[in-house]
Amino acid sequence: MDLMIGSRPWTELAHYAEGQTMADPLSQLLAGRDWLMADGATGTNLFNMGLASNVAPELWNTDRPDLVRRLYRDAVDAGADLFLTNTFGGNASRLRLQGAGHRVRELNLAGAAMAREVADAAGRKVVVAGNIGPTGEIMAPIGSLSQARAVEMFHEQAEALKDGGADVLWVETISSEQEFRAAAEAARLADMPWGGMMSFDTAGRTIMGVTSAQLSALVERLPNPPIAYGANCGVGAADLLRTVRDFVASGNERPIIAKGNAGIPHLEDGHLHYDGTPAIMADYACLARDMGVRIIGGCCGTTPGHLRAMREALETRAPGPRPSLEEIASRLGGFSAVGDY
């Protein structure tokens, strides 16, 4: 008889935790739960608090720590089991655009330390995910960013997030295999468990042409595979779940992450508004769960109100059969591209 850990057999757990220590909180939560809820948007919610569009959100880690703490607390209060640090663009390349390239360690350390405080005060186990986004540069040979420099930038950020108290690294919105590999190497150098996501746009590819099947294969070839992998952002929740279907079909049994946008953005009075209602995002969350997604959250446009609706739906609606593409389209508003891909 197989040894059980939480509600899952050890053999299943070992498959996705290979190379990772059971001490990390994300693996512990995954071992005992069928699904976890991640947080929502960072930028959208900070913009709603008054962040100007020309200011890097990471600067608020020192300039407006009260509002960054509120961002974190709002996610926890809405039911998130995992929330991201306000450090998505906290690498040297992106911060240099704000004249803050020398502040990588300071801003990442501050963002993670505040998150650690909020998580520790939650009264339950909540995972702090040290957020790492793309460098903003194009990797060689198409662009000028070398693999070594990409690893160096990601590693600098990873070490600061680790020292600030992050439980795992959360690499997201990546578009190229080379940059994904660089982030994976940085996680190895920092000796940190990690999760990795790419962003798939129209026709199911990243802007650099990577398919969901290619990502599923890539994570298994890495020397230090992520605890979980998946997709975030992209076009909308329906398209993201079509990508998830391909992850499932790949045969890769590593836990899947889905962090979809709250609908499609529209420009109104000079501001972006997303058309995904809390009810639609609640449907998205349950559809993702029924597809086998283990970590479910929102990306752009997802507010605490959306998260509360998602959590309630996940806890009160009984699991159902794996949804068809037709059901996904009918409940979430259709796909951006006609036909299958």
Rank of each mutant, 00 (worst) to 15 (best):
R188Q: 15
A285C: 15
P9N: 13
E172S: 14
A160C: 13
D77I: 10
M22D: 03
L95D: 11
R103A: 14
D191L: 01
A249W: 02
F83E: 04
I132N: 03
V76D: 04
R311C: 08
G164M: 09
F200T: 07
E312L: 03
A187S: 09
G19E: 03
L287Y: 01
G19P: 12
E152M: 11
S216A: 15
P225E: 01
A262E: 08
T206Y: 11
D167F: 10
A313W: 01
R70S: 12
I256V: 15
E179N: 06
P65C: 10
R8D: 11
D120I: 04
Q98L: 06
V235N: 11
G195Y: 01
Q28P: 02
L325F: 03
Q28L: 05
I142T: 15
N48W: 09
N108F: 14
E137I: 13
G334Q: 12
G234D: 13
H306C: 07
V168K: 00
S175H: 11
R33H: 15
V128L: 06
G263P: 04
Y274I: 08
L51P: 04
W10Q: 15
I142A: 14
L46P: 03
D269K: 12
L169G: 06
L314R: 02
S212N: 04
G236R: 06
R103H: 06
L161I: 07
A150P: 09
G236W: 01
G196L: 05
A78F: 09
A115S: 11
F47A: 04
P265K: 13
D81I: 08
S93P: 03
T302M: 13
V127D: 01
T85R: 10
G320A: 12
S146P: 12
K259M: 15
A119R: 02
M4Y: 12
T277N: 05
Q20N: 10
L307S: 03
R205Y: 04
L169P: 01
W170L: 11
F180I: 05
V219W: 00
C299I: 09
E185F: 03
T243E: 08
E58N: 15
M49I: 06
A228W: 02
S199H: 02
T42H: 01
L51H: 10
A337L: 06
G234C: 14
G276L: 06
G133N: 02
W170K: 00
V168S: 03
T202M: 11
A228G: 01
G263T: 07
I328P: 08
A110D: 05
A337E: 01
A31H: 00
T173F: 07
D34G: 14
P321H: 03
T202E: 08
S199W: 01
D283L: 10
A160R: 10
T85G: 10
D81L: 12
M192G: 01
A41R: 12
R331K: 14
